[in-house]
């Protein structure tokens, strides 16, 4: 029954998190100076119009009532209407979320596929030159600002070399693949549209690398320390004493066990990548949630910003649930099979 228990626990947690986040965002949106009704009405609107818009939006009601309406709205999937686009916030987020998620997942893939081997090499050749190189690289990765790296990459690969596009999700001359998942990579493949797939891939390289580079260091360091732990375990010595070759022991026995604690870090990284993409998306003109939120913040579009916060915290809790479930699936010690 542990599966059911952990899901139940996480779902209770989810409710608490959404409640907390909605309360905080609601409070902040009412503390920050600025009158949404005035914003909607425009600078030159008369006071009567502003008052009637305020009534329309329910902003004249007592705060607890406003919050109650907001909270019950969330539970129904209604995040309110954007002041900027005049469309329901939830629709805007559904439109922009897949772009961000696609970018975050590819960035995570890059960070993992590059970071994990570096971490393994670093652990196996501890204190040797390659270890120092990897550790330096990790610090550089963690401390490099995404917007700076993004600009350097654009200047180099788009500006100077002209080998990769400098922004956007797909070549504007190509038709956007018909939406099934919202991931262009998946949708273009489903439609059998290889040029669109290739163009999407080329557009993903620079932003995904920019975003992934920060986490590459985190992943490498995590894998390194987990591998150092595993390599000191007795079972590694037993395997070697039984004549299993060194790299087979490293990759077949130690690495899978080292990946178990690393899954937590990867899960956290995915959460980070989702809302941390704001700068990267802005630099690469990536039509994701990041750009949407930046625009919303600049125009004091409270419902949009609050909706984004709620959706991201939702995603965070779901990623954590997924991490727990993956743990249980791959580590027999947790479920106690048989």
């Amino acid at each position: 029954m542990p599966f059911v228990n952990i899901i139940r626990k996480r779902l209770i947690f989810l409710v608490l998190v959404v409640f907390g986040v909605s309360l905080i965002t609601f409070a902040i949106s009412h503390i920050i100076p600025g009158d949404p009704a005035r914003l909607v009405a425009g600078d030159r609107a008369s006071d009567e119009i502003v008052t009637s818009i305020r009534q329309q939006m329910g902003l004249d009601r007592p705060l607890p009532e406003q919050y109650w309406r907001y909270l019950t709205g969330i539970l129904r999937g209604d995040l309110g209407a954007s002041l900027r686009t005049n469309r329901p916030v939830i629709e805007d987020l559904v439109a922009f979320f897949p772009a961000s998620l696609e970018l975050a997942l590819v960035a995570l893939l890059i960070a993992t596929l590059m970071g994990a081997p570096l971490g393994v090499l670093s652990a196996v050749y501890r204190d040797r030159p390659i270890d120092h190189v990897v550790r330096t690289l990790a610090v550089i990765g963690i401390s490099t600002p995404a917007f700076w790296l993004g600009l350097i990459l654009i200047v180099t690969f788009y500006g100077a070399l002209g080998v990769l596009p400098g922004g956007g999700r797909i070549d504007p001359n190509l038709a956007i693949p018909s939406r099934v998942t919202g991931f262009y990579l998946v949708d273009s493949l489903l439609a059998g549209d290889l040029p669109a797939f290739g163009s999407t891939l080329r557009h993903l390289v620079l932003p995904a690398f920019t975003l992934g580079f920060i986490h590459l260091g985190v992943v490498a360091r995590q894998i390194r320390s987990a591998m150092l732990d595993e390599l000191q375990q007795d079972y590694v010595r037993t395997a070697r004493a039984n004549g299993i070759a060194k790299w087979r022991v490293i990759c077949g026995h130690a690495l899978p066990n080292a990946l178990i604690p690393s899954i937590t870090v990867l899960g956290l990284a995915l959460g980070d990548l989702l809302y941390g993409a704001v700068l990267t998306e802005t630099v690469f003109a990536w039509p994701g949630m990041g750009a949407y939120v930046v625009n919303s913040i600049q125009s004091l579009d409270f419902p949009a910003v609050m909706g984004f916060s709620v959706v991201v915290s939702f995603a965070y809790v779901l990623v954590n649930l997924a991490v727990d479930l993956i743990y249980m699936a791959i580590d027999p010690r947790i479920t106690g099979v048989n």
Binding site: D234, Y235, R237, T238, R240, G243, I244, P256, N257
Partner: peptide, 22 residues
């Protein structure tokens, strides 16, 4: 690698940790 396990094998102290736990 060919000698270990085939010509000479080893038994260690800690049976708890001497086998791969997963």
């Amino acid at each position: 690698v060919n000698i270990r396990g085939r010509d000479v094998a080893m038994i260690f102290q800690e049976p708890l940790t001497a086998l791969n736990p997963t």
